[in-house]
Design a protein around this nucleic acid. Structure first.
Length: 811
RNA sequence: GCCGCCGUGGUGGAAUUGGCAGACGCGCCGGACUCAAAAUCCGGUGGUAGCGAUACCGUGUCGGUUCGACUCCGACCGGCGGCACCA
């Protein structure tokens, strides 16, 4: 069979006979499968896309053949930084490039032969879509879930612009090499922290990889502790710290503020100003990752200011140190050198007092720093209490005197959504000199992204330079006002796309809740593990927020999640243009056909593991399909000639092979174990050849097995199986047939082979009746000559019998 | 650095979740068919020793739990993903 020609024939057939697309009438029986959509930055679909989409489509086709009404949409995450940077570099326009790339990718996806519902295609960069992204922003704003605050960005002084983390190389701007500094800017945030507890709790109910759930749990990072306020003399506010070890409060010898906190400048004494300013400037150059590194030397500077210990009333010096981050907790920590590694090193370095306030429960004097739980000492009225009790007592006391108390803290931060870039969804806010930030009325949406904008970086959000865009009137007072010049993080666009697919043509609303509540949640979501913490958390948050607004009825958008592994370059490194190890899937598709290529990907790699690319043995898949074609066609032509269908013992064996294959393949689908599923199909084909080689082979039966084989194989190589289905007289699409179901009766065996071990070493294999109990198995084993020889007259003390597997005799 | 994952023959990967390590392929070796080659079909293939039955070793390294460990626990080595403006 010419696989490339077969691709074309059946792609055209599917195009003209929408035989396996979703039918809304049968939504009760829906199966919504979705792959993480591609980002159309490169001009082509890469191997990673193929590895994601090919197997996922195979799974979708399996569900279709199981009788599900499968909805498998596709779209493009079209806004984003790389498109903008590419345009800047080449002097082109991101809109034009993106549309061109989308066209190319659509063509490639069609070549792949996946059963996407193109009627439901969605792309984020079109006003028909981003109008509703803006609507979502406004809904969140109305609910108090969108707000503005100052937050740090990477700033390049030379380019005079904000730059992305990706563009920072060794602390310098990748374009010009200037040292990057952190700078505070006003930005929009979504209050994802409001949902921290639910995001954490509902993880338990999800059919997601355990590692992904663990990563999200750690990302949310819930910790129970205390908030403690140290007053600042002469000021109304104080310094509030978060700690999980309130029991060590009496051992505090200093307090540290994150250097970037605004408070620092306000409390620093004139004598310390120069040193503090210099330290703050230095800190602005370091990334959070560096600052959190425990290998980094602890540094800090005294501000000259003192705060008041809430219980002892002592004067406590206030320092700044870069290991304290402004974005975690309250941006301030208390220093207890005797009972914290880091504080101990810091205190030793700067000559701060070390006061022991915890001893081991056993009472022995351990070396400092002592960081374990224990019993309080030198703690005034709180002496002699275990960590848990001391914490509770101190919390109670603090809360009584209004200086803090029990507090739950999260590592999770609110989601920053403002981007000082052109190629994104404009933020639907108008800034009025009188009324402040005013939401754009819904009837005025979309706020259209203008085409003619100078988006080269020169100090401001690109949109700010477009008068036509910026100048508008305040919706409240009608006086001149300015639009928000920023665009939304592309993760906002992708946080709700699963809601738009089913209802993508809706011009009245983002989606029709009645339909969406029927279609959602997504039954299977397939995509990369790199999204474990951000995209997947954002999407969950948005679903919950919309639920609380009354738009949707479900709690979680993705019931079941699978990650494909990463396909590395032939050298074992991540594919990248810089490295020059990028593999283009098209060359293989053109040479072998998409079915062979798709199946090779599924057979070569474990889906969830991936691995380094190699085309070793890609021909073996074509060879296998040739083998399938030969036996299928031969069994059909021979069966016609045959006059009688003689029964034989071989039929029973082949029936076993067939049903075992059906059972194993069906189970493998559920775990995305495509490689082993294909191995089982190869075994079946081997069994068919063996059967055929037997002199008394029954072609009528072989023809039946062939028909089942075509159906079993169809999801893996859809074009080839449509062709075989037609060649063997099938009518219509093979995907309208039902997937074979295992006949358990055919799997019953009278006898099984089990292993016999003596002292856990394998000594023999014996055949026993399949229902044999321990005594029967033991007697059979003791009759075996290998066992007799190995026992060498020793007596059996104990036997461990695992039915159908092994018998271990301990002597 | 922190969080998460991975490590099995010459090679890609299997292993019913603590029960016969290496399924199914690739590669290699041998045979059949052929004038020959290709294609196809059949057989073999973890290592060491032995003619052989068989014995010993073997899942990154070291240790532990267990009748039994690729699987569980501890320490280490190597690789990968994420770390909040790449998506």
């Amino acid at each position: 069979m010419d696989y490339v020609k077969t691709d074309k024939k059946w792609n055209a057939y599917w195009e003209n006979n929408k035989c396996h697309l979703f039918n809304e009438k049968n939504a009760d029986n829906k199966y919504y499968i979705m792959e993480m959509w591609p980002y159309p930055s490169g001009a082509n679909l890469h191997l990673g896309h193929w590895f994601n989409f090919g197997p996922a489509d195979t799974f979708a086709r399996f569900k279709k053949m199981q009788g599900k009404e499968v909805f498998q949409p596709m779209g493009f995450d079209a806004f984003g930084l790389p498109a903008e940077n590419y345009a800047i570099k080449t002097g082109t326009h991101p809109h034009d490039n993106t549309l061109k790339n989308i066209k190319t990718m659509e063509r490639q996806l069609c070549d792949m032969g996946a059963m996407y519902d193109w009627e439901h295609e969605v792309s984020t960069c079109f006003p028909e879509y981003y109008r509703w992204t803006q609507w979502l922003f406004l809904e969140l704003y109305k609910k108090g879930l969108a707000y503005q605050k100052m937050a740090p960005v990477n700033w390049c002084d030379s380019c005079n612009t904000v730059i992305a983390n990706e563009q920072v190389v060794d602390g310098c701007c990748e374009r010009c090499g200037t040292a990057v500094v952190r700078k505070e800017m006003t930005q929009w945030f979504f209050k994802i922290t409001e949902y921290a507890d639910e995001l954490l709790e509902k993880l338990d109910s999800l059919d997601w990889p355990e590692k992904t759930k663990t990563m999200q749990r750690n990302w949310i990072g819930r910790s129970e502790g205390s908030e403690i306020t140290f007053d600042l003399p002469g000021r109304k506010d104080g310094i509030t710290v978060f700690t999980t070890r309130a029991d060590t409060l009496m051992g505090v010898s200093y307090v540290v503020l994150a250097p970037e906190k605004a408070l620092v400048a306000e409390i620093t004494t004139p004598e310390q100003k120069a040193a503090v300013d210099a330290y703050r400037a230095e800190t602005a150059k370091a990334s959070d990752i560096d600052r959190l590194s425990s290998a980094r030397e602890k540094t800090g500077v005294f501000t000259g200011a003192y705060c008041i210990h809430p219980i002892s009333g002592e004067k406590i010096p206030v320092w700044i140190a870069d290991y304290c981050l402004g974005t975690y907790g309250t941006g301030a920590v208390m220093g207890v050198p005797a009972h914290d590694e880091r504080d101990f090193a810091f205190a030793k370095k700067y000559g701060l007092p070390v006061k022991r306030v915890i001893k081991a429960e056993s009472g022995e004097q351990s070396e400092l720093p002592y960081c374990e739980h224990g019993v309080t000492e030198n703690s005034d009225i709180f002496d002699g209490l275990k960590t848990k009790d001391a914490t509770a007592k101190i919390q109670e006391h603090l809360s009584k005197i209004g200086k803090g108390g029990k507090k739950v803290n999260y590592r999770l931060r609110d989601w920053s959504v403002s981007r000082q870039r052109y190629w994104g969804t404009p933020i639907p806010i108008i800034h009025c000199p009188e009324h402040g930030a005013v939401p754009v009325p819904e009837k005025d949406l979309p706020v259209t992204l203008p085409y003619n904008v100078n988006f080269t970086p020169d100090g401001a959000s690109p949109l700010r330079k477009s008068d036509e865009f910026m100048n508008t009137v305040c919706p409240v007072c009608g006086k001149p006002a300015k639009r928000d010049p920023d665009t939304l993080d592309t993760f906002v666009c992708s946080s709700w796309y699963y809601l738009r697919y089913p209802d993508n043509k809706n011009e009245k609303a983002a989606f029709n809740p009645a339909l969406i509540n029927k279609m959602l949640p997504v039954d299977k979501y397939v995509g990369g593990a790199e999204h474990a913490c951000m995209h997947l958390l954002y999407a969950r948050f948005i679903a919950k927020a919309l639920r609380d607004m009354g738009y949707v009825k479900f709690d979680e958008p993705f019931t079941s999640l699978v990650h494909q592994g990463l396909i590395l370059g032939p050298d074992g490194f991540k594919m990248s243009k810089n490295r020059g190890n990028v593999i283009n899937p098209d060359t293989y598709v053109d040479e072998y056909g998409s079915d062979v290529f798709r199946m090779y990907l599924m057979f070569r790699f474990a889906f969830t593991e991936g691995g380094a690319w190699s085309d070793d043995g890609i021909k073996s898949i074509a060879k296998f399909l040739d083998r399938v074609e030969r036996i299928v066609l031969k069994s059909h032509s021979e069966a016609k000639k045959a006059t009688s269908a003689a029964q034989s013992g071989a039929d029973k064996e082949l029936a076993y092979a067939l049903n075992y294959c059906i059972k194993a393949v069906s189970a493998d689908f559920e775990t995305f174990s495509f490689n082993t599923a294909i191995a089982r199909l190869m075994e079946l084909v081997n069994a068919m050849y063996k059967y055929e080689a037997a002199s008394n082979s029954n072609y009528a039966y072989l023809r039946y097995v062939s028909t089942e084989l075509i159906k079993l194989l169809a999801p893996f190589c859809p074009h080839v199986c449509e062709e075989l289905h037609e060649l063997t007289g099938g009518k219509g699409s093979v995907f309208n047939k039902r997937y074979p179901v295992c006949d358990e009766k055919a799997l019953i065996k009278d006898e099984l082979e089990i292993a016999v071990q003596i002292n856990s070493k394998l000594k023999a294999r014996i055949r026993v009746p399949s229902e044999a109990d321990e005594t029967t198995a033991k007697n059979a084993a003791l009759d075996d000559e290998n066992v007799i020889a190995a026992l060498d007259g020793k007596t059996v003390k104990k036997a461990i019998y695992i039915r159908g597997r092994l018998l271990n005799l301990i002597v």
